[in-house]
């Protein structure tokens, strides 16, 4: 209680500096928040894309229904496979017709159905990763019934690369924001420290431990961090609501990441206080 009271009076003392510090920290953290949210959304797109990923194996024209059925039995034995659907040439044509909609009359000009029969293979969700998909696709390609194989190889790896790049950018932005927050908090707390210099000396004189002397200042730093993170989360959330109206699939920063974000802000703010404190504690009493 004593420490908290001292911390609050420290913030009051620093006044304008405290407010400036909180504003700078809020905006620095907001930038990090925007990056985290962008990452979360890209991951969401990637997850959605993976969900949609299936392997389509086109069969030779001379493959009979029986031969197709035996192929399905074989493919079902591959452990990562969730489901297999057989698409006959006629149902493929129906699909195409549906996709053409009003212009499906174009297809009427065809004398024979040019579409091959195919099987569509979906993998279990946890295996819908590029490496796994390629592996399974290559195994299916080995079967004699299969003429060609198709899956979204190109854009999946592009998307995975993008997510990785953004995750690296998150780290870089986190580092810059962390340093900015560290510097602002340590300067603000230093101001309080100058004002409380005499009190610190007296505390040292009467045998207060470093921990006892530091506590109010660390709490002061933590309060700066908490206010800043609350403000930046609020702004970020309002921004998210605006985007959400336009893009309902947009997601907010996931809760584990929010937890990390809060711990990061408070941790950096306390570290900033501690940096300033260290030099003060080494001063002499007299």
């Amino acid at each position: 209680m004593y420490h908290l009271k001292q911390a609050l009076s420290g913030i009051r003392r620093a006044g304008f500096m405290s407010v400036a510090c909180i504003i700078i920290m809020t905006f620095s953290l907001l930038i990090l928040g925007i990056f985290l949210m962008a990452t979360a959304n890209l991951r969401e797109i990637l997850r959605y894309a993976h969900e949609k990923v299936e392997i389509v194996a086109f069969l030779h024209d001379d493959v009979t229904k029986e031969a197709a059925d035996s192929l399905i039995l074989e493919v079902e034995k591959i452990p990562y496979v969730e489901s297999i659907r057989y698409v006959s040439p006629s149902s493929a044509l129906d699909r195409l017709r549906a996709e053409f909609g009003t212009r499906s009359y174009i297809l009427d000009a065809l004398d024979v159905n040019p579409l091959p029969a195919s099987i569509e293979v979906t993998l279990k969700p946890q295996y819908r990763l590029k490496a796994r998909i390629v592996g399974v696709a290559e195994r299916i390609q080995q079967f004699p019934q299969v003429e060609d194989i198709s899956y979204g190889r190109g854009w999946i790896s592009r998307l995975e690369r993008l997510v990785r790049a953004v995750a690296i950018a998150d780290l870089a932005v986190g580092l810059v924001v962390g340093i900015a927050a560290l510097v602002t908090v340590s300067y603000t707390v230093r101001l309080t420290l100058y004002a409380r210099r005499e009190v610190i000396r007296i505390l040292k004189l009467v045998g207060a431990t470093d921990g006892f002397i530091m506590s109010p200042f660390l709490i002061e730093g933590a309060i700066h961090g908490l206010i800043s993170i609350a403000a930046s989360l609020l702004i970020l959330y309002l921004g998210y609501r605006v985007i959400y109206v336009k893009i309902p699939q947009a997601v907010f920063v996931p809760s584990q990441l929010i937890a990390f974000y809060i711990v990061f802000a408070v941790g950096v703010a306390m570290l900033g206080s501690w940096i300033s404190l260290r030099s003060f504690l080494r001063e002499k009493v007299q």
Partner: peptide, 22 residues
């Protein structure tokens, strides 16, 4: 150690010319 200094000062009271009150 820094801790020792704090403990020592709990056993040694100090008074100055300028009182050093808050």
């Amino acid at each position: 150690s820094r801790k020792d200094i704090a403990m020592l000062r709990r056993k040694v009271g100090v008074v100055f010319q300028d009182f050093r009150l808050i």
